[in-house]
Design a protein around this nucleic acid. Sequence first.
DNA 1: GGGCGCATGTAATGAGTTACATGATTGA
DNA 2: TCAATCATGTAACTCATTACATGCGCCC
Lengths: 173, 173
Amino acid sequence: MDERTLLILGLLKSQSQHGYQINDFIERNLGRVSDMKKATAYSLLKKLNESGLIEATTEQDGNRPAKQVYSITPAGEEKFYKLLRMSLVQVNDYLPHGDIGICFMDQLPKDEVIGYLNERLAKTEELLASYEAVPPHVEHLHGVNLTIRHRIALFRCDIEWMKQTIEELRARS
Amino acid sequence: MDERTLLILGLLKSQSQHGYQINDFIERNLGRVSDMKKATAYSLLKKLNESGLIEATTEQDGNRPAKQVYSITPAGEEKFYKLLRMSLVQVNDYLPHGDIGICFMDQLPKDEVIGYLNERLAKTEELLASYEAVPPHVEHLHGVNLTIRHRIALFRCDIEWMKQTIEELRARS
DNA sequence: GGGCGCATGTAATGAGTTACATGATTGA
DNA sequence: TCAATCATGTAACTCATTACATGCGCCC
């Protein structure tokens, strides 16, 4: 939750926005950094408003549904910096999804496992290629590029690990 | 949830066990692969029993509280293999926790950020060392070793990425 | 007698998702 | 006129966690 709060406060810090805008920006530009969903964004905005970290003004364009435009408050800025510092020092402790399966791989014939891992390897390489193909440059948020590089590094690491694992399986008598 | 189900079914496949035993095994031997908590294990066991993937017999030792000893059923074995295959082909798509903070790093003075990243780097190196120090060998589940190697690789990757990022920050005018 | 290990469970809470519901504007 | 985009929100649900509650046996 802290992470999502940090994201919303950070986006509002650079510019007052309404919910739709924030969600739209995340979907379009930050799909590779956050998976926050629309409903989550709206309800977080509501909650942050209630707790005084952001404040809302209502805007209306003609006959359209009214917008709730949110701005960050001084308390919100303080919270933003606190969360940002916490986030920067925090160690990533990975518990990769697929590793439970790896634990039980001996329950299947070696060749079958190698087949699955090769499939996974190919899909991961595809994913990596898609990241390498599109150098993203999100305006005013150029730290995003560092996170993309981070993910690319992680994919490469995964690929190496899979190759090594497959090799080792193959080498088994 | 699928992952937790796979874990429990996999453990029961090798041996009928009661809840306490399963939780104990996970805590002692699989703390680096799964973070499933006691209450989760118990309620999952209940649920899997209700859906027929496992079955329970009651055992009593003297006057102690009765144990629910669970065994995997044929339906459970089928489910196990299905989940195992799914798990093995599934691509890991990492969304590292700390990366939201990285996006906003420009909001803090460069030197402060470098300080935080160095702190994070040191902590990660410590964590890595703890993984490298203890070569785990869980009996009958030797795939676990591969997952430990996986995490070691990911930590090394993270460390490299942090060093590179710090270097780049330093190089900024 | 007190604390630890064995053994089971429930209740409250929290975070987040999916799916639903509504309605205006705009462009093909 | 029909679909897409703009715009907001709620309700039900799932998953998992924390904290609580209980009680025996064993050893110091």
